[in-house]
Amino acid sequence: METSARIAGVRITHPDRVLDPVLGVRKRDLAEYFAAVARWMMPHVRHRPLTLVRCPEGHEEGCFYQRHASRGFPAEVDRVPVVEPDGATELLVVRRRRGLVALAQVGVLEVHTWLARIDRPLRPDRVGFDLDPGPEVPWSAVVEAALLLRERLRAEGVQAWVKTTGGKGLHLIVPIARRYSFDAARGWARRVAVALAAAQPQRFTLEPRKDARPRRIYVDVLRNAYGASMVAPYSPRARPGLTVSVPVDWEELATGVDPDAWTIATVPLRLRQQPDPWADVGRRGQRLPVSESR
C-alpha cells in the first residue's frame, strides 16, 4: 500500500484510505475527482471564502466544519487575513486547481462557499434559495416547487439558475450586481419566500423544523448573510455514496433527473458529454428591486 501519491501536482498521503465504503472511494479517488471537475467547479469556488466539511477518516467515522486556517493545512490553500467581530483571523480561499485538489489531502468531503467574494465580503454577488422538502415530499413536488419559484423570480425581473443539493432538495441561485448589502439581499429574498408561502401555504412554508412540515417545502433564505455559505456546485456530500450537488438546465429538470445517480463516480462523465448549464452564471450581475443603501 502506497504511503503517498502525487495527483495533479499535489502530494496526497495515505491515498488508499477509504472515505466512503459504499463506493469504496479512497483519498486518491477524491483528489482525482477534484482534479477532473476543476474546470467546471473553480468558477464557483475561486476567490470565495470557504466553509469545509472534513471527514479525515471517512464520513462514517465523523466529520467537522472548518472555515479558518489551522496548523498543518495544505499550503496550496490560501489564507486571507480578515478582521471579524471576534478579532483578526484567516479565512480559507482556493484560487487554483492545485488548491482544490489539496482539499482531498485533509479529507474535505464537502466544499461550501460564501455568497460573496473575498475582495468585497460584505457585498454578495449571489442570492440563494434553498428548497428543503419535508420527509413526505416526493422529488416531483420539489421540482414543481423550483419551477414555481423560478416564475416568481421572473416576475421580480431576475433569472435564476438551479442545481441539486446532493440530497433531497434544490438550490436556486440569482447572480446579482455587487452593490447590495447582505441585509438588502436577504430582505428581498425573504419577501419572495413570504409571498410564495402565502400564495401556496399547502406547498411552501418558512418553518425550518422538518417535524412541523412533513408535507411542505421550507424556503430557506437565511444563508444570505455574512459568513454563511451554501454547498458549492460539483461538491460531493458527506453521505453514503458521495452524491454531488449538480447544476442542471431548467428543461432537463422539468423532463426528469435522478439526483441520487450523480456521484463522484458519474459526474466527470456527465461534464464531458454535455454543455455546462451554469457556464454564464458568473457574467450576470442582475439588479434587485430594492434600495442599494440598505
Rank of each mutant, 00 (worst) to 15 (best):
Gly24Glu: 06
Arg26Tyr: 04
Arg26Gly: 03
Lys27His: 04
Lys27Leu: 13
Lys27Ser: 07
Asp29Trp: 05
Ala31Gly: 04
Glu32His: 00
Glu32Gln: 12
Tyr33Gly: 01
Ala35His: 02
Ala35Trp: 01
Ala35Tyr: 01
Ala36Tyr: 03
Arg39Glu: 12
Trp40Leu: 00
Trp40Met: 00
Trp40Gly: 00
Met41Ile: 01
Met42Ile: 01
Met42Leu: 14
His44Trp: 04
His44Gln: 06
His44Pro: 02
Val45Lys: 02
His47Leu: 08
Pro49Thr: 10
Leu50Thr: 12
Leu52Tyr: 04
Leu52Ser: 09
Val53Asp: 03
Arg54Glu: 12
Glu57Val: 11
His59Lys: 11
Glu60Asp: 14
Glu61Pro: 05
Gly62Met: 07
Gly62Trp: 07
Cys63Arg: 10
Phe64Leu: 11
Phe64Tyr: 14
Gln66Phe: 00
Arg67Glu: 13
His68Tyr: 13
His68Thr: 14
His68Gln: 13
Ser70Arg: 15
Gly72Cys: 06
Gly72Met: 05
Gly72Thr: 07
Ala75Pro: 00
Ala75Gly: 01
Val77Glu: 04
Arg79Cys: 05
Val80Pro: 05
Pro81Asn: 11
Glu84Pro: 04
Glu84His: 08
Pro85Ser: 05
Pro85Leu: 03
Asp86Thr: 14
Asp86Arg: 15
Asp86Gln: 14
Asp86Cys: 11
Asp86Gly: 12
Asp86Met: 13
Gly87Gln: 06
Ala88Lys: 13
Ala88Phe: 11
Thr89Lys: 13
Thr89Pro: 06
Glu90Phe: 11
Leu91Ser: 07
Val94Tyr: 02
Arg96Phe: 00
Arg97Lys: 10
Arg98Asn: 00
Leu100Glu: 03
Val101Pro: 01
Val101Leu: 00
Ala102Val: 01
Ala104Leu: 02
Ala104Cys: 07
Val106Cys: 09
Gly107Arg: 02
Val108Tyr: 01
Val108Gly: 04
Leu109Ile: 04
Glu110Ser: 04
Val111Trp: 05
His112Asn: 10
Thr113Val: 15
Trp114Val: 11
Trp114Cys: 11
Leu115Val: 10
Ala116Trp: 07
Ala116Asp: 08
Arg117Phe: 00
Asp119His: 12
Arg120Trp: 08
Pro121Asp: 08
Leu122Asp: 15
Leu122Ala: 15
Leu122Phe: 15
Pro124Asn: 09
Arg126Ala: 14
Gly128Met: 15
Leu131Cys: 12
Leu131Ser: 09
Pro133Ser: 03
Val137Lys: 06
Val142Glu: 03
Val142Gln: 07
Val142Gly: 06
Val142Trp: 06
Val143Arg: 08
Val143Ala: 08
Glu144Leu: 15
Glu144Pro: 12
Ala145Asn: 09
Ala145Ile: 10
Ala145Met: 09
Ala146Ile: 08
Leu147Pro: 09
Leu147Thr: 12
Leu149Val: 12
Arg150Asn: 14
Glu151Leu: 14
Arg152Gln: 15
Leu153Ser: 05
Leu153His: 07
Leu153Phe: 06
Arg154Leu: 15
Arg154Val: 14
Ala155Phe: 14
Ala155Tyr: 13
Gly157Thr: 09
Val158Glu: 13
Val158Phe: 13
Gln159Asn: 15
Gln159Ala: 15
Ala160Gln: 13
Trp161Lys: 10
Trp161Phe: 15
Thr164Lys: 04
Thr164Pro: 04
Thr164Trp: 02
Gly166Asn: 07
Gly166Tyr: 05
Gly167Gln: 04
Lys168Gln: 13
Lys168Pro: 05
Gly169Asp: 02
